[in-house]
Design a protein around this nucleic acid. Structure first.
Lengths: 167, 167
DNA sequence: GAAGATTGATTCTTCAATCTTG
DNA sequence: CAAGATTGAAGAATCAATCTTC
């Protein structure tokens, strides 16, 4: 729907051709890329892309330990989604959970040795996937632009965030 | 994991700093943007972003009718996902389904009047969302770049597609 | 028997409710 | 009672199996 045939309000600012083109391409990317990434990870590693990100984030900490709330932030997920996912990772033996006595009401997730070995085994294939699925079609300038543009949009989102509708 | 501590294979080509930056930002965007888009649509229209796309695609056809397989292509989804979604839209009265007698083994989805009215009512708010969530932080050059880059990646994906692992 | 499509089972996500601790 | 986190139920996506038509 590009023209409001039934409404008659002329106040809508529709997207101009360039914006529309960008939106169409971005929309397709948002549908297709996560699917492809997930499929690759599932085939190569038997885990979801999201689970990989959790383990990857943990592995970058010196003690392979991170608070749940920080981990949620790092993986851009809700605490609830994260908690369910960590439960699954515990079942697989890749992560353990501990209540954090000091601070009181928080928990931490810890990457196990088994989890770390798994990650080390999987990482090279993952990097190859990113390279072939994302980077291989882009030149250096486009890679830089991608970083800038994605960051700008994400910042915008963080700014807008809640209550956009007033409801 | 950036260095293969346990593996010892020096053959992995890790991402260089620019590539890594782009990948980190893109990854975040893939997690956050669909969530935000879905949330907006749910709040403003009581439907998912995916359902909106289905109805939007139908509305662009002269007779508001499209074959299921074409619709799957247009929305970048599997036929299975689409079929489930169309069932939900039928329950809401926004779409009906008919077996396509002529061609034989295909079906079509048709946007109802009710569905069209719904779309007309929702579209302006959706455009505003796209504008505020995506476009508002970008200048004209960046919008053009976004279209190009997203298209390149999507093309790459379509090319790679299956059997990347050989398994 | 192959393409187009649907269905059911399983898995994951989301939402709301709950629990725990300072 | 508020922040951090978990849980269970409901909704949606995926996968494999099935159905239909040529």
């Amino acid at each position: 729907v590009r023209s409001a045939a039934g409404g008659g309000d002329g106040r809508v600012r529709w997207l101009n051709p360039k914006e529309l083109a960008a939106w169409i391409e971005l929309r397709r990317l948002l549908l297709v890329l996560p699917t492809a990434l997930d499929a690759q990870m599932l085939r190569q590693a038997g885990m979801s892309f999201f689970e990989y990100q959790i383990m990857s984030s943990l592995s970058e900490k010196a003690d392979r330990t991170q608070r749940m709330s920080e981990l949620a932030e790092a993986t851009s997920s809700s605490l609830s989604r994260l908690s369910h996912a960590v439960t699954r990772l515990e079942d697989k033996g890749f992560v353990i959970r501990r209540r954090c006595a000091g601070v009181g009401r928080s928990s931490v997730a810890i990457l196990t040795y088994k989890g770390h070995r798994k990650l080390v085994a999987v990482a090279p294939g993952h990097v190859e996937s990113v390279r072939s699925l994302v980077m291989s079609g882009l030149n250096q300038d486009q890679i830089d632009s991608l970083a800038t543009i994605a960051r700008r949009i994400a910042e915008q989102l963080a700014g807008d965030d809640v209550g956009t509708d007033g409801a």
